[in-house]
């Protein structure tokens, strides 16, 4: 799927300075007859914390999965830190990226999954050190020092030798957060990270994300159904509907004075129940 690299589809509100860390340019993704991303233009500034909300099936998870190279878009170009993600330049054109290119660009991206996806055959410590050692080429002692520090930060410094099957859901998700942080990405994706948790375990995970959002320099893209949490951590809230950004703005505006009737009815439905 060739695309034109010189297409100057400029974003409507230029968040300038070092340039956006992520940019979607007319990205379309279809699953069969269903269009989940519809010529999407979207960007994320350095250090920006974005909450993505919207009805299920609106395509908000697909944004994350395209960015993580788990789902290949049908059309459009995604840029990460200025570099095309799914394409690479060749003879002045953009051609489909190979595995080497994907690996080079995706080292900027990290992801925390709804269902944790911890490696069941590895201890908590090894879950966190495996990729730094074998992907980033860190020494074992260096990777373990970092892992212990991160596990301490998520409150699991005493669980390093346990296996995932011995942990509660909330603990698993905190390990998964530490594991993703160990790769030091520029953008971290959170895909409904509390949806699979029992209600009493949601708080411990959200608190860690709150601290993280406050302290970190990396950009965060958070798909969530927790509206209060979105309001607390996000610089910008994006309401997604039918594969497009229906409305976006600071949380104060989106939650207090939404303009789009779709946003209004969505918020009414989720906040009233």
């Amino acid at each position: 799927m060739p695309a034109n690299a010189s297409d100057p589809a400029s974003p409507e509100n230029g968040r300038s300075d070092p340039g956006p860390v992520v940019r979607f340019e007319q990205v379309t993704k279809r699953f069969g007859d269903l269009t989940v991303l519809d010529r999407l233009d979207f960007e994320v500034a350095q250090n920006e914390k974005i909450a993505i909300i919207g009805p299920s099936g609106s395509g908000k998870t697909t944004i994350l999965r395209v960015l993580m190279t788990l789902v290949e878009p049908n059309e459009g170009v995604v840029y990460v830190d200025g570099e095309p993600l799914w394409h690479k330049p060749a003879n002045g054109e953009l051609v489909r990226a190979d595995e080497a290119h994907l690996r080079k660009v995706r080292k900027n991206i990290g992801m925390v999954f709804q269902h944790f996806n911890l490696f069941p055959h590895m201890s908590v410590l090894r879950n966190v050190t495996e990729a730094p050692i074998h992907v980033l080429g860190r020494s074992r002692s260096e990777a373990e020092d970092q892992a212990l520090h991160l596990l301490d930060k998520v409150g699991l410094g005493d669980k390093t030798d346990q296996f995932p099957s011995q942990l509660s859901g909330g603990q698993k998700q905190r390990v998964a957060i530490a594991r993703a942080l160990a790769m030091q990405p520029k953008v971290m994706l959170f895909d409904e990270v509390t949806s699979a948790l029992d209600p009493e375990l949601v708080g411990e995970v959200l608190n860690i994300l709150r601290d993280l959002a406050r302290d970190t320099e990396m950009a965060m893209l958070i798909v969530t159904h927790e509206m209060q949490f979105a309001r607390d951590v996000a610089d910008r809230v994006v309401f997604f509907d039918s594969g497009r950004v229906a409305e976006e703005g600071p949380p104060s505006k989106i939650f207090s004075a939404p303009e789009n009737p779709r946003t209004q009815s969505f918020l009414k439905a989720v906040l009233d129940h």
Partner: peptide, 27 residues
């Protein structure tokens, strides 16, 4: 081996061979 395991391997930027050897085969 659940699809999520492979996706986690991609998210941690393992190569295809590493995903097979370190994540899929042991499980």
């Amino acid at each position: 081996v659940p699809r999520g395991q492979i996706e986690a391997g991609i998210a941690l930027n393992f190569s295809a061979a590493q995903r097979m050897r370190r994540i899929v085969l042991p499980q």
